[in-house]
């Protein structure tokens, strides 16, 4: 039985990273604890918002540039 409201455990629970027993206990605790339910909701909300954070597309020619730099460094210096 989880007596205290642990945001750290909620954070693990949100990731599915609590052990089986602890996760079952958390489920039970959540049924009777509105404040932990709210906190969990917040974590899930953050996770959704962060997962949706837009990312830049990889600049064109990125891989070609790296390969070019790599080759330049591999070949013996020619002066």
């Amino acid at each position: 039985m989880i007596r205290s409201h642990s945001m750290k455990k909620l954070s693990l629970y949100a990731d599915g990273a609590l052990g089986k027993t602890a996760s079952r206990q958390m489920q039970q605790h959540l049924q009777s604890c509105p404040s932990c339910r709210l906190r969990l909701e917040e974590i899930m909300r953050l996770r959704r918002a962060l997962a949706a954070k837009p990312a830049h597309a990889l600049p064109a020619r990125f891989v070609r540039t790296v390969m070019g730099n790599y080759r330049a460094l591999q070949s013996p210096a020619t002066f």
């Binding site: 990312a55 830049h56 597309a57 990889l58 600049p59 990125f62 891989v63 790296v66 390969m67």
Partner: peptide
């Protein structure tokens, strides 16, 4: 590189 560059850059 193709398969990992995007996530590293992001």
């Amino acid at each position: 590189l193709e398969s990992h560059a995007s996530s590293v850059y992001a």
